[in-house]
Design a protein around this nucleic acid. Structure first.
Lengths: 338, 338
DNA sequence: TTGTAAGCGTTATCAC
DNA sequence: GTGATAACGCTTACAA
């Protein structure tokens, strides 16, 4: 029975095994092989009877090896973020790291605090889905040699890999699909683009590509949560283009949610007025006749982010690219069927 | 400009401020008041020019004060869990603690690993939404004096506060509502109840209360994800009770999702056949005519969990109750309107 | 009010 | 192969 009051230490294991601290340390570190089989056995035995487990705090103290990865999420209640977090966590565990997840609720101040904190815990790497532009602090990490990966959003003047969706491609795929389905006028709906390079990029590409295709188009920036203004903008757009087949393209999951509500408030029939969203959500299949989406490969994105980190933590020969973009996959449903 | 290569240490601050390590330590600890204003000023000055921040690893090592709370989540992709996690994180931050979130994907083995890990990081408290029955390990924490709070699910033989919904009340409220709306036969749908005390409790109370009310009732345990068997069970129930007004009560969010899919596959009209779910979800308002739910006060639950922990970490006069149950709130929508 | 010095549990650097 | 021993950065008696 090993329900001691105190965690046992390396010294106690060493004594019980008739060995030195060093050997026990080696056993639990990278150098187990250097120990003779008999010593290994004794240590294993002693450790198990004592229920010994190395104290990570002490480990982190000496060599700076906290075995911790920090992750900053802009909005943890966003299903997309959750999916990515899930991927990141899995990958971390595979590499023997633990993940400290911090949620910033899109608040730059909280973001700053959390970054300080993660630095205080000596995280060995950082996965950041930025809320603001914490350039200074990220530079601090970089200059200390802590690798950083940016998720989904870039930060000015911070050189780090950026992992995320190929926004250019995503918008193109969306418009292509809408055109094929015969829609002639498209309204793009986005959350406020100021804070997010991804939102800006999608928005910009939308203008560009819609122009190229000769589509009638407009933009709706979501503001007030009650959606009063949005409702007006949407119906104005539909009226102005009533001679065309109209569709709405949503820039992310939140936009899709908001617009679906608007459709219901306005009594619009999905499909008659097309609806398509970037980001796949649980319920997109459930709102009849189903909402067409562009799904992001969230697990792959998370996994890739961690891989970038690992390559930089234990530097190999190959240099990594500075941007990794994934293609979305089209999930076709009734909302884009006229 | 403070972009040094290495984090500066307490010693450097002390030197620059012309003070001792102890004073600097006091300044950043609980004893700032004991220092003379002039000393405080000098230290503040020095610390800020050096960009000093105490190393939490070192702090944790000496006194065991890691300022870390560990949280184990059974399924991080479940919106309910996310909401709770959000609440827990906020509360932790308020108390000056950071949160390490570990997801177990409902896998007892992962759960064990994560518990070992959290213990290795010297977490000062634990919020656990158990996947299995990690009695042994939880006891280890308890015997080391680390307080534990159980979320939503109990674990046999582990004495710890349990924070969650008042399941008894929730089921009663649901049945009451369904009765008032004129439904006479109710099918209860649940995920496998083996692992979860909450699921068991709701299921049990359903039988009991449905019986008391003289309702016709049945049970559907979700198994295969494709839902083939479930579809059969549901339609059988409806056929068997076709002379009554039928409704389905879903035991949690996943069940609601699954059942909503079934309704669509079977072409059932919401309301005609009643549908009600425990757990509120983003999209419940969006599937016409809206799905009636019982919402859990997730923020309150998360906050309470952390408060329990804090009371035990810094023991006060009052003893805490061993169970804290919250009442759900009814959100009435069209799916329970005949 | 302030400082000195002894750890905390581990890893890294040398020796043997 | 194995083992002393000195850090790591901080807290905390104990002095002054």
């Amino acid at each position: 029975m090993s329900s001691l009051l105190r965690r046992s230490t390396i010294l106690e294991v060493a004594r019980l095994a008739g060995a030195s601290k060093t050997s026990v340390s080696r056993y639990f570190g990278e150098e187990r092989d250097r120990l003779s089989p008999s010593l290994q056995a004794r240590i294993a035995q002693a450790a198990s009877t004592l229920g010994y487990q190395p104290n990570q705090m002490a480990r982190g103290l000496k060599g700076g090896h906290s075995k911790l990865i920090g992750m900053l999420v802009a909005d943890i209640r966003n299903p997309f973020s959750v999916a990515i977090t899930h991927g990141v966590e899995q990958a971390c565990r595979q590499y023997g790291y633990s993940l400290v997840v911090c949620n910033t609720d899109n608040d730059p101040e909280q973001e700053r605090q959390h970054l300080d904190l993660l630095s205080a815990y000596q995280v060995e790497g950082l996965v950041v889905n930025p809320s603001g532009s914490p350039e200074r602090q990220l530079h601090t990490f970089i200059s200390q040699g802590t690798p950083i990966v940016l998720l989904d959003r870039e930060v000015d003047h911070v050189e780090a890999e950026v992992v995320g969706l190929d926004n250019h491609l995503a918008v193109d795929m969306a418009l292509e699909h809408l055109c094929v389905q015969g829609y002639q006028a498209v309204l793009y709906v986005s959350e406020a683009p100021e804070q997010s390079s991804t939102r800006q990029r999608r928005l910009f590409r939308f203008h560009q590509a819609a122009e190229q295709r000769g589509l009638h188009h407009g933009t709706l920036l979501l503001a007030a949560p009650d959606g009063s203004a949005s409702q007006q903008t949407l119906s104005d757009f539909l009226v102005a283009h009533r001679q065309y087949a109209c569709a709405v393209l949503c820039g992310n999951g939140n936009a899709t949610l908001a617009v679906t509500r608007l459709f219901q408030q306005l009594g619009l029939a999905l499909g008659k007025v097309g609806l398509m969203g970037i980001d796949e959500l649980d319920w997109c299949a459930l709102v009849p006749p189903g909402i067409t989406t562009l799904a992001q490969p969230t697990d792959a994105i998370g996994k890739t982010a961690v891989e970038c980190l690992m390559h930089r933590i234990a530097p190999r020969t190959s240099t990594m690219p500075t941007t990794v973009s994934f293609a979305p996959s089209l999930i076709e449903r009734g909302s884009t069927q006229r």
